[in-house]
């Protein structure tokens, strides 16, 4: 059996900077198999962002274990984590985090280059991703000149540029209108069919509907973890009740 793409064992996060410690994540166990698409849902403040940030090594855990592929990651030094992330993880932040001094094209190509792609591969990958997200004509712009929805799509393209073994995303469709969401859905569906592992925090039911599995958090704990089944086929009329 191959290693899980991602694994968390009794993962805990306590923010202890303030007057009272905040128990944001309280003992989460999670195992994500290669190729799985997991939607992480739950009310605001339930610990979703904290969880995926820890899984991506962007926030330190208080206790517990994190495994990426077969590698124990939570005990790595910051620089070793950064190296692992570069090779294996794509991250889409809730608030984009694009490099302001680089063009859109360079923002997307850079992680591919850092991940070990040749300049030609990086360019082709960038062209494909920007094309799929309807951003080709924005390639030479600077991120500051883009709308929120455009920046968010660039952030998704960037996260997919190095063909990461795991794509982690924190509400990547929060700023999109319905047309752009369709492009994002199509791309996510495409990379998922090609075997991309995805763990995505989302409130968007259309995005979550693409997932194989839903993990619901409440108050820092997993309260539900199960498959999303597909049953119905047929025409819209058969699925949708006309009252």
């Amino acid at each position: 059996m191959s290693d899980p793409a991602l694994k968390a064992v009794n993962l805990v996060k306590v923010y202890s900077g303030g007057a009272v410690p905040v128990h944001a994540v309280r003992g989460v166990d999670l195992q994500v198999e290669p190729g799985e698409f997991v939607a992480v849902m739950g009310p605001s403040g339930s610990g979703k962002s904290t969880l995926v940030h820890m899984l991506g090594g962007l926030d330190t855990r208080t206790s517990g274990e994190i495994w990426v592929g077969g590698t124990r990651a939570d005990t790595l030094s910051e620089s070793a984590w950064a190296l692992l992330r570069r090779k294996k993880i794509g991250f889409v932040f809730q608030f984009f985090n694009l490099v302001a001094s680089m063009t859109v094209a360079d923002n997307v190509e850079l992680p591919a280059l850092l991940g070990g792609a040749s300049p030609r591969e990086a360019r082709e990958r960038r062209e494909h991703l920007l094309g799929a997200l309807n951003l080709t004509d924005r390639a030479d712009a600077s991120p500051a000149r883009l709308s929120g929805g455009e920046q968010q799509r660039v952030a998704l393209a960037r996260a997919l540029a190095n063909k990461p073994s795991v794509l982690l995303a924190d509400e990547p469709t929060g700023n999109l209108d319905s047309r752009n969401t369709r492009d994002v859905l199509r791309l996510l569906g495409e990379v998922h069919r090609d075997g991309q592992t995805i763990v995505m925090v989302t409130h968007d039911a259309r995005v979550a509907g693409l997932a194989d599995r839903v993990v619901a958090l409440f108050d820092g704990e997993v309260v539900d973890d199960g498959r999303i089944t597909r049953r119905r086929t047929g025409t819209a009329g058969a699925v949708i009740d006309l009252r």
Binding site: A205, T229, R232
Partner: peptide
Amino acid sequence: QRRHYLSLMGDLNDL
């Protein structure tokens, strides 16, 4: 109920 809604949404996506 959440799982049920998401599975309906999956069907609508396919559709």
